[in-house]
Design a protein around this nucleic acid. Sequence first.
RNA 1: GACCCCAUCGUCUAGCCUGGUCAGGACACAAGCUUUUCAAGCUUGCAGCGCGGGUUCAAAUCCCGCUGGGGUCGCCA
Length: 424
Amino acid sequence: MIRVRFAPSPTGFLHIGGARTALFNWMYARSQGGKFILRIEDTDLERSKKEYLDEILISMKWLGLDWDELYLQSDRFEIYRGYAKKLLDQGLAYQDGTAVILKMPQKQIKIYDLIRGEIDFETETLKDQVLLKSDGSPTYSFACVIDDALMEISHVIRGEDHISNTPKQIVIYEALGLKIPKFAHLPLIMGTDGARLSKRFGAVAVSDYQKEGFLPEALVNYLMLLGWSPGSNQEKVPMAQALKSFSIKKINKAAAAFSLDKLKWLNTQYIKELDTVKLVELLLPLLKEKEFWDDDFDRKKLENIIDLYKGRISTLNDFLDWTDYIFIEKIIVDSEAKEKLGADRSKEFCSLGEQLEKLKDYQPEIIEKVFRELVDELGLNAKDLIHPMRVVLTGKSVGPGLFETMAVLGKEKTVKRLKEAQFN
RNA sequence: GACCCCAUCGUCUAGCCUGGUCAGGACACAAGCUUUUCAAGCUUGCAGCGCGGGUUCAAAUCCCGCUGGGGUCGCCA
C-alpha cells in the first residue's frame, strides 16, 4: 500500500513551494491508488498559529488536494515521549536537563533517493541529535521519524532542503528499530532571479494567487510542470491525464525558476475554456465585493458580458478592470484614452444617440448597421468615430469590438454617454 | 568554511538510463496575417547542450576534473 504525506508546519501560510510538494505527494497517492495523509507539524508551540492552520487547510481544499487522514503532532506528544524514554532506557540517548539527546553513532549512512539515486554521508560530522526539547516537545526530526513509521508512510516525498536531515533521521529509525521508508527529494522552486523564493519575490502564498484571480486548475497545472513533464509536448495537462503518466522517477533533479508569465498564460487558457455559467459563479462574489452587482442585474446579461471578455482576461480580477464601465454610472477616463478623443464629435454622437434610441432590437449587427449608415451619410471614416466612441463609452482606448461593447453596455447607458460626451 | 545536491534556448522542459534522429515543444521576445483599437488566434523568426579532459568510429547522452548555482550545518520545521 502506497502511503504518502504532506507535513506542513502552521507557522505561516501555505506557500507555492509547499503546495508543489503537496501536489506531488497527492498525485503519487492518487495515481497509485494509495493514501494521502495530511500531518500538521505543530510542535513549535511558540510559532504555530491556529489561523495559519485554517489557511493551510483552505488552500489545500481550494487546490483540490483532498486528504484521507489528518493528524496533529500536538495531539501526539505522549507518543514521542514514550519513544524517548525507550531510547533513554536503552542507553542510546542521554538527558541534558529535561532535554533528551540521542548519541550520534559513528558510521556511514547510505540513502537511496528515488529521484537522485544513492547519496552517502558520514555521521562523524553530525552532532548529537536533540529528541525532546527542554519544554518536553519533540524536535522536528524525532516527531517526523516516529510519525512516518507509525503512520506507515511508504514514501517520503519532500523538498531538497531536507536531504541533509535524512542521515540524522536514519540514525533515529535505526536506534528505534523502525522501518525506513523510501525517500524522494524534490528540487526546490526558485524565484525568477534564481534566488530563493521569498516575500521579496512577490506573491508566495497560495491564498495570494487565489485573491489575484487565478484558477486552482491553472495553478496546479503550472506547479506540476515545475520539475515534471508528461513527456508529450503538452503544457495544458488535465489532471486525469497527468495521473496516468505520473511517476516519481521522471521528476527533474534541478531547481526550477517560477515564471509568473507562464502561470498567467496558463490561467488565460483555463479561463478561456471555462464554461460561462461556471465563470458567473466565480465572478459573482468579486462583482458583489466591488459593489458592481445589484440584484436587479440580469444574470443572462452577465453571461453575455463574460462571453465577450473571457477570451482576453488572464485573471478573474482582470475582468473587473475591463468591465467596470458597464456597472458604474460615471466612468473614469484614463489619460491614455483621453488622447484618443481627438476632434469634437458631440454633434455626430448626438445624432447617433438619437438613432440608437429608436432601436427596438438593440443587437451588435443592428447597431453596426445604423452606425455605418450614419458614417456614410456624414462622409466620415468609421475609424474617426469608433475610437473616440470607445473612449466615451468605456473610458478606455482598448477593448473588444465596439458594437459588441455597445450591446453589452445596454441601450440606455450607451445613448446617455453619447449624448453627454465631453471633448475638452 | 565543512558536508550534500544540481547543471539543455532568458525561463519551464523533451532527449540522457539503453551513445548515432537538422537538439523537439511551451512561456517570453520580434515580425507578419486578421482587424475597429488592444487582447486572443494563426504563421514565421530569434535563441541552448557551462568549460576542460578522457572513453568511442561517433558524446547533450558514459567517466573524471573545473567552474557556476543551490541546500544544510538550531532545544525552527
